[in-house]
Design a protein around this nucleic acid. Sequence first.
DNA 1: AATTTATAG
DNA 2: CTCTATAAATT
Length: 745
Amino acid sequence: MSHDAHRVPITFRHLVSAGSLNASNPLRVISLVDVDAAYAQFEASRLGVDSSVVPLAVQQWNGLIAISYAARKFGITRHETVESAKEKCPEIRLVHVATYAEGAQRAEYNEDPSPTTHKVSLDPYRRESRKIVAIFDEMCPLGAVEKASIDELYCDLTLAVRQVILQRFPELARPPANSPLGLDTPLPPPPKIDWTDLGYRVPTEGAHQESAEGDDAKDAQEADKQASRQEELQESVREEIAADTFKTAAINSSPPLVQQAASWTDYALACGAELILKIRQEVMDRLGYTMSAGIAPNKTLAKLSAGMKKPNCQTILVPGAIHAYLKDLPFQKIRFLGGKLGDAIAKEWERSTVGDLWSVTLAELQEKVGDESKWVYDVLRGIDHTPVIERTANKTMLASKNVKPPIRTLQEAQRWISILSLELCVRLKEAREESPNIWPSTMVLRYLKAGETARSRQSSFPFVRDLKPESVAVVAERLWGEAVGEQMSSGKQLSEIIVIALGFSGLEAGEQGQRSIEGFFTSKAAASNAKVPALAAASPPIPQTISSKRERALEGETMEGKGEDGRSPSPLGVVNGTIGEPSAKKIKKVKASGLQSLFQKAAEVTSPLQPEAAQPSVAQDASLDSVSPAPLTEEAPSMPSWTCPECQAKILPRAHVGEPGRAEEGEDSDRRLAQAKQDHEDWHFAVNLQKEHSAALQPRGSLGPSASQAPASQRSASQKGGGGKGSKDKKANKNAIQNFFKKGG
DNA sequence: AATTTATAG
DNA sequence: CTCTATAAATT
């Protein structure tokens, strides 16, 4: 499937236009990075052992929740019991997660915690996670960093890559002066790429490739077949460990591998790989953790790629490799197809690989999966426009406990509530170190009675600068009382509560927190309680509604409404502010799952420029221009000229030239002015991009092996203890930069 | 505000 | 697939 011929040429606009900064840009570069066996590495580090060599597992009660790669070689897997693991590897180092004990002020590594008295704590891992995220934030100043989980994050490297390309090829900032197509002039042929050290490349079709890295993953997998020959296995594994072990695959040197880039897309991905390599090295240097990464044109493919070579490897998936790779991939490995949706599809068509489903039409898909169909259809073809959302802070935090034995009395309830309250308190406090103004608008108490379904009770939660566990507990107990209190208050114990959870939601970085906070006080002012208003008077005057409705609306439009796409963003969060979405809804909705929004909105955006998979894409860069609504809304439609706020240049409507396939019935000088403005802004964009100094990604000599690390001096700024403030400023600055680019200057 | 659903280690 | 966490839709 050599569809190169069909592919739309990559133009200057794609490289240089702020307006082209959308999910369809062929130079889009996304990465998913995850910490290898995260908890195991974290614990190993804490204990001063090398988790790549020492078989180690993290245990939670009697189960294992993380297995070091060294331990995996013994065939030990997640969800295995401690006993079973010891059988497979008698010398395995087992570490129990930290726990909160009654009366303690914080989670600790207790000797032998019991589920009857302790509560598991993942706090230490969240802390490490934050450190890692901070490094990414620091080193990806131009792109969004989205924390996907405690050990995974996405980053959008598109801008950083553009910057690198423009630094290396300054002449690309402007199309040739005499080019009639202007920004729509195709870029010159792409340069060569030195793949040395950039990671494993998923083989492109036809061409048999060698891995630039070791074959660690293969070795790692190899031992996974256990059964009766456990002894031999242990033996062989030991030898293996003694012999070589963990090559620092991504860092080792391999014979130079220089190739002509198949396209600028490939070159861009290679640049992304350089960046990720450096960040991974930085994380290794500062924190000592290995990570695996995928570098690809979108989130789905980046995630798949990251899983291909582990641990400590990064994988690059270029367009030319997508088709062959997806063809035989079990489709249920695709993100979000691993659950019920995937099962439903598998059952309906009795297929298992992505390629198997290529023959299913969109219409057929719609019949069975309704609103998700477009997303599914696209993702099966390697297309995924979901944006990387700048988000490193959580919106909710929940501390839950499966209580054994079940709670039967108020005293027992209070005991667990105090522990859960403490944990929430600790976590909120730590979250505030990063976002000082963050506070939860709501507190939620969830509980599960034996044999029933979960229930919950919630109420608004007041802002308190110096939050104490007791304060949290007061609210929690009130909720408890409302929920089940009466039944057991008088000592008569009824229902058995087997799960109790306490959480915060509506966690918002008070950007303009002041206002919000004031609003809270003024609206509920009443409670004349000085410092700890509502809390002191726990029961009666708790504010009913902090109604963050306006804030949500605001968030939806301000932040996400823009998306990366200028017109139809598909943020994970926002579902309502859908743009024009008339048709999509009518189809029967078999699933009605929470994925719909995500899918359908992402799908909405057609992606003619998508370099991915079998897309016989059709040309129409035109959309890029229509993407700039800004000038139209902010200026009088009839305005014959526009003055650049940046340089005061007076811009006149663009002359009639170029714009193939776009020759509408002219007359709209407005449109041409908008174009001219866009071009002008693009120019600023390019210039600024060239000026900007990327701390992380320094251009390395044309083709040589990765050049020296960016001098620490250049990026030092923050990082030290007082990280709180520093990282905040950093983030603000970053947002400013991003906004600048999004608005086109 | 309450409840349910989906997903993922 | 023990438990824990998160996001979001529905009502």
